[in-house]
């Protein structure tokens, strides 16, 4: 764990930057503006066309995977410090990074196999 911690820290930083720069706009549109009818949502066909573009797939993978690793790192330390679970150090680490890994793998699998 300690050998790869600089790498996990870099993922935390990259994911935090992606989430800070892009999540407010995406969340505002898909979570609030479209469902509430403030703005017209793109049609299914337009979205379907968009996600099959290789650059869009890469973008979506980065948009999903890196913020998950950002969460894993930050939430892990929130559990240690906030709930004083330092004795569960390895268990929590495996749980958090494992969840981020599964989410990223599912995203990669989905985006890679778009017909």
């Amino acid at each position: 764990m300690h050998r790869i911690s600089p790498f996990l820290w870099a993922l935390f930083g990259a994911g935090g930057t992606i989430a800070a720069l892009l999540f407010p706009a995406h969340l505002f549109l898909t979570g609030l503006a479209f469902p509430l009818g403030w703005l017209d949502a793109p049609s299914y066909d337009a979205l379907r066309g968009m996600v099959s573009h290789p650059l869009a797939r890469l973008y979506l993978f980065v948009l999903i995977a890196l913020p998950l690793f950002h969460w894993a790192h930050r939430f892990r330390y929130t559990l240690y410090d906030g709930l004083q679970l330092k004795h569960l150090f390895n268990f929590i680490a495996v749980l958090c990074y494992g969840a981020a890994l599964i989410g990223s793998a599912l995203a990669a699998y989905t985006l890679w196999n778009i017909p």
Binding site: T30, G31, L60, L68, T110, I114
Partner: peptide
């Protein structure tokens, strides 16, 4: 970070539905 992860998963859910 919890809400960041939540929205990442919502995005994944949406992409899978579009596909």
């Amino acid at each position: 970070s919890v809400f960041v992860a939540f929205f990442a998963l919502v995005t994944l859910w949406q992409v899978r539905a579009v596909v």
